[in-house]
Amino acid sequence: MAEWPSVDVVVPPTTVRLEFSGRRPEHAVRDLGGVYAGDRWGASPTDGDFDYRYTALGDDEVTIRRSQMRGAIHGVVPAGGDYVVTWMSLGSTEVELPGGRYALPLETPVLFPPDEDFSFRAADHDQRLVHLDRAFVRRIAAARGATGDLALRFDVERLPGPDGARRWQTALTALGRALRIGGPESAAWRGAKAAVVEVFLDLFPPVVDELPAVLRQPRNARLRAAVQYVRDHAAEPVTISDLAAASGLSVRSVQESFRRVFDVSPLTYLRHVRLDHVREELLDEDPQAGAVGDVARRWGFAHLGRFSAAYVERFGEYPKQTLRR
């Protein structure tokens, strides 16, 4: 019996239409915390009456949203979910990560941290948000250049300049117009939402995340921050206390997390990262330069005998053999 060729089924995006409002802080916590799977949220009046309003329109690939509040709200937003770009036009919002705290500027597109839990405080605000589905962003990023099956990583502290802010506003104006005129099932909407992702990728240039796939799991978000710290500071003195501060974990939890996921201690993981960097440099060095010692010291290896033994254990050859390749 002949077999029919398999056909990929394309599931059309689902329309998103959401609106709620209220005058009670506990209802704001229920409604807004529900949208963002929030944890430990609270709300209160600031000066006078409390009220809030939230709207969202689009589809499950891109939605345009607006959040307005007379009052204050705070809480924790878990890692994962959509990429969310916000534009504050009134009020104040402060974001806190394990590595520090920063206030969102007005009239500037800002990317909320997508890959680690963060806490926030907002008061008397009016902000417009754009939610971008991760898979949709990945498809467009892949069309711009190969990304393989690795995750994208974004610098949440990057702030576009005035030209970038104008580009974002122009893209959002076109997105809103397509939504009003054609609706979320129109060709105009499909083109406009692809264009807004293109601008997003220009304003917040992603890098392909070479971290292990296991660190993409939300439960490993804090360990991910510690691993990223190791990668960013491998040439510097690094202590377990530094990793604890970067990740928001206790020293003991840092040690247990590295053992659980990598089956090595944090300092052994650091040594492996340093050895990998040494090997990369030796493979690029001139064999006549005799630079093994210099490269090793640059990556934190003060005792060259111990370094050589660790190198052989990891790569099965001596550093000078790598240099002569």
Rank of each mutant, 00 (worst) to 15 (best):
V196C: 12
E198C: 06
V199F: 15
L201F: 10
L201W: 13
L201R: 05
L201E: 08
L203N: 07
F204W: 10
P205Q: 07
P205E: 10
V207D: 07
D209W: 01
D209A: 02
E210Q: 15
E210V: 09
L211W: 03
L211H: 02
P212R: 10
P212Q: 02
A213R: 14
V214Q: 13
R216P: 00
R216D: 15
P218W: 00
N220M: 02
N220E: 13
A221C: 11
R222V: 00
L223V: 01
L223H: 05
R224I: 04
R224F: 03
A226C: 11
A226M: 09
V227E: 03
V227L: 01
Q228Y: 01
V230E: 04
R231E: 15
D232M: 04
A234V: 12
A234C: 06
E236G: 06
P237V: 07
P237E: 09
P237I: 04
I240S: 04
I240H: 01
S241R: 08
S241Y: 07
D242V: 01
L243Q: 07
A245D: 15
A246K: 01
S247Q: 05
S247G: 03
G248D: 07
L249F: 00
L249E: 00
V251H: 14
V251N: 12
R252W: 03
S253W: 01
S253Q: 14
Q255M: 06
E256N: 11
E256K: 11
S257R: 13
R259M: 01
R260L: 13
F262N: 06
F262G: 09
D263R: 13
V264E: 14
V264A: 10
V264D: 08
S265D: 03
P266W: 12
L267V: 13
L267D: 09
L267N: 12
T268Q: 12
T268V: 15
L270R: 07
L270W: 05
L270V: 10
L270C: 10
R271S: 13
H272T: 10
H272M: 11
R274F: 03
D276N: 10
D276T: 11
H277N: 11
E281T: 08
E285Y: 04
E285K: 09
E285S: 15
E285I: 05
D286T: 08
D286W: 07
P287N: 05
P287Y: 03
A289S: 14
G290M: 06
G290V: 04
G290Q: 05
V292N: 08
G293E: 11
G293D: 14
D294T: 11
D294H: 05
D294N: 04
A296D: 11
A296I: 10
R298S: 12
R298L: 10
R298A: 15
W299N: 14
A302T: 12
H303W: 08
H303L: 05
